[in-house]
Design a protein around this nucleic acid. Structure first.
Length: 498
RNA sequence: GGUCCCAUCGUCUAACGGUUAGGACGCCAGGUUUUCAUCCUGGUAAUCCGGGUUCGAUUCCCGGUGGGAUCACCA
């Protein structure tokens, strides 16, 4: 019988959740869902010195924003909550467990007490590095007699517990992505398992917790491959069955070609969300970084990803994070939004841009968002894009001149347009009828469309690029003073040309 | 430096050992159009190198080169 699929992500609350890290969460989540398994979140806060206040909340909330929530462990629902019966899911609340298991290892001689000072360890390391040896602990404390150990402990001498690695063992394991990997135990240091402050190191904690939480697949970044043999040694020492190991290729920075790092600018998930990247776009983009369903489909919903996901379609090599492609995904997802969804999502950005949206009818706001929808790469651009609707923009008179048309023609055309629009009843403005009317008018007067419509559009927007003049006038037509605004702006343009 | 891992267009990636090496992003050109965007057409551009195995290697093997990861009382 197949074991139940139980996978976990185990972030450290040492900072915000970053964009590259998300993919590991995503793949764990997809795999769990695909196999009707459980997705667990565990907080690895064993490094007390590096804790950052608020980062636990940031991590769990960012995940929730992306639509990823844990079946067990911390999750976000109007605040930080926890569920599941294999807790605690925070390692600092599990200290007794680690101590117990570390002691078990000492009793079985798989681990030993070490009293060496930081100073001695540093000297040892410097010495080895000078000789070009890989730095490793020299097992000195392994030779301590039980009496000496008891004495040192009773006198409260600072100590750690180290893994006792036997030399010349070949440690082999099978990785679901990378295949068979073997590393000699000679490469492995007598890793510290329990620190002098009583906290476990990652290596002890991860093995104990994965065992107790019955994790079936350890899915993590491939930077952990060199540590996996240590973990295997621990599983063997405890007599526990091994989980499956799945290591994921890294996400690389376009700039450095190296692993995407936190210090490299705005890589926080929250920052991407703030810029107006849609969760679905981020997920879609990230999913395809290192994984491919082997079809030519590019756009996937989360459900589709769940259905398609499997480890055998995973890549082994790192993938560069390309913002251009994310932008493209984002624009695709923005274009798919229904107008009311777009409105809700854009609201904060409009407000931020100082636009008093409550002073305008809802259908006006909807209209202008529709006009800009296909032009948006990020929601955060919306304020800048639509500001000309709310405030007249200044521009160079030269901008009104279309191609090689002379100034007088433009002026003449604007004048006749203005007179014509002036003569139209306001009702025409409100019912999207301007395009037909104006085109008819231009035809009658034998005015070339470019020589009239370009300056008209510039007059209305003050911009080199924008939606078309009819669409813009249709939007203004919704406002009670729409006709007035239009005529005013044309007037301003005429003045500029004088 | 030791160890481990990896290698197809600039980027993300397809290709039972047999394809004109395909798609997507980007870029370029054309079409639609009053500009931009959208949309449509087309184009640009890749199997790291050298040996094997084979009738035939992008694909399998070996070596080189290149890149990455890791070697803490950090995870």
């Amino acid at each position: 019988m197949l074991k139940e699929v139980r996978v976990r992500n185990a972030p450290s609350p040492t900072g915000f959740l970053h964009i590259g890290g998300i993919r590991t969460f995503l793949y764990n989540y997809l795999f769990a869902r695909k196999n009707n398994g459980k997705y667990i979140l565990r907080i690895e806060d064993t490094d007390q010195a590096r804790l950052v206040a608020g980062s636990l909340e940031n991590i769990v909330q960012s995940l929730a924003d992306l639509g990823i929530s844990a079946d067990e462990g911390p999750y976000w629902d109007n605040g930080l909550k926890t569920r599941g019966d294999k807790g605690p899911y925070v390692q600092s609340e599990r200290l007794d467990l680690y101590k117990k298991y570390a002691q078990e290892l000492v009793d079985k001689k798989f681990a030993y007490y070490c009293f060496c000072s930081a100073k001695r360890l540093e000297e040892l390391r410097n010495d080895q590095e000078a000789k070009k040896f890989p730095p490793k602990y020299d097992k000195r404390c392994l030779n301590l007699s039980p009496d000496e150990i008891a004495k040192k402990i009773s006198s409260n001498e600072s100590h750690v517990i180290r893994l006792n690695v036997q030399p010349d063992q070949m440690i082999e394991f099978h990785d679901l992505v990378y295949g068979d990997i073997k590393i000699s135990s000679n490469e492995i240091d007598d890793q510290i398992l329990l620190k002098s402050d009583g906290f476990p190191t990652y290596h002890l904690a991860v093995v104990v917790d994965d065992y107790l939480m019955q994790i079936s697949h350890v899915i993590r970044a491939n930077e952990w491959i060199p540590s996996t043999p240590k973990h295997i040694l621990l599983y063997k020492a405890f007599g526990w069955d091994l989980p499956e190991f799945v290591h994921l290729p890294p996400i690389l920075s376009k700039k450095t070609g190296k692993k995407l790092a936190k210090r490299e600018g705005d890589v926080a998930v929250a920052a991407f969300l703030e810029k107006g990247y849609l969760p679905a776009a981020i997920i879609n983009f990230l999913a395809l970084l290192g994984w491919n369903p082997k079809t030519e489909q590019e756009i996937f919903s989360l459900t589709e990803l769940v259905n398609e996901f499997s480890f055998d379609k995973l890549h082994k090599s790192g993938a560069i994070f390309d913002l251009d492609k994310l932008d493209w995904f984002n624009s695709v997802y923005i274009r798919k939004l229904k107008i009311d969804e777009l409105l809700v999502l854009c609201l904060p950005y409009l407000i931020k841009a100082g636009i008093k949206i409550d002073r305008y009818p809802k259908n006006f706001i909807q209209k202008i968002l529709t006009l800009e929808q296909e032009r948006l790469k990020k929601l955060s651009e919306i304020g800048d894009r639509v500001k000309y609707f709310f405030q007249e923009q200044d521009y160079e008179p030269q901008l009104l001149i279309w191609k090689k048309t002379d100034k007088q023609t433009i002026l003449k055309n604007l004048n006749s347009l203005q007179k014509f629009l002036q003569s139209l009843p306001e009702q025409k403005f409100a019912e999207d009828a301007l395009e037909q009317e104006i085109k008819k008018f231009l035809e009658e007067k034998n005015i070339r469309t470019g020589e009239a419509l370009w300056p008209l559009r510039v007059a209305l927007t003050g911009l080199e690029a924008s939606p078309g003049p009819f669409e813009i006038m249709d939007a203004f037509g919704i406002l009670p003073d729409g006709k007035e605004i239009i005529l005013q702006r044309i007037n301003k343009a005429i003045e500029k040309l004088f």
